[in-house]
Computed example of a mutant assay.
Amino acid sequence: MNPRRKHRLSIIIFVVFSVSVVTGLVLYALGQNMDLFYTPSEVLYGKHNDTNTKPHVGQRIRVGGMVVEGSVYRDPKSLKVRFDLNDIGPAITVEYEGILPDLFREGQGIVAQGILTEPTLLQATEVLAKHDENYVPPELDAQMQKVHKPMGVSDLKSESDKDRQAKKEGVNDR
């Protein structure tokens, strides 16, 4: 092989190697900063009840759900807040230190972003509350509709089909 071809080959090999290294580093950085969205049920059971898709302790995630009524505990000496978050299944506990959004309250839909420190404990770095008081994260809304529609509840805030039928028939429980 003549020296000119050797030189071209070494340049091509160097470029391919450099592009491979840069691509690998970019993918590694993206993987470290990726925050996956889960509901509280998915945190405990995995997506679609597959335990292989459960987030592991130490993973950075986002969890969306409703703040459980009566579960908010505020530390009187600091800005630490602890509350439970659930969807249609079990609840997980969220700990947060900082100023909560003005619209944060019990029964409100929120999204908490942080690190899973125990299987049912999220150390949140950010808590988001939507301005609409009827806010439900899209994934949670889809899951709730799957469960509540078959039960005869047409709207989560309205009466069930059975209640409407009873009113039509004039049945009174009193």
Rank of each mutant, 00 (worst) to 15 (best):
M1C: 05
M1L: 11
I12M: 12
I13N: 13
I13D: 08
S18K: 04
S20P: 02
T23C: 04
L25G: 10
V26Y: 15
V26S: 05
V26P: 00
L27Y: 06
L30F: 15
M34C: 10
F37A: 02
Y38I: 00
Y38C: 01
N49D: 09
T51P: 13
T51K: 06
T51D: 11
N52S: 12
T53E: 03
T53I: 02
K54Y: 10
Q59C: 09
R60K: 13
R60V: 03
I61V: 00
V63H: 03
G64T: 12
G64V: 05
S78C: 10
V81T: 13
R82T: 05
N86L: 14
I88S: 06
I88R: 15
A91D: 08
Y96C: 02
D102N: 02
D102Q: 01
R105M: 04
Q108F: 09
Q113Y: 11
G114I: 08
I115T: 10
E118H: 08
P119C: 05
T125H: 05
V127T: 06
L128W: 06
K130H: 14
E133W: 07
P138Y: 13
E139S: 12
E139C: 00
D141M: 11
M144L: 14
Q145P: 02
K146D: 15
V153S: 02
S160L: 01
S160I: 09
D163I: 12
R164D: 09
G170Y: 14
N172M: 09
D173C: 01
R174A: 01
R174G: 04
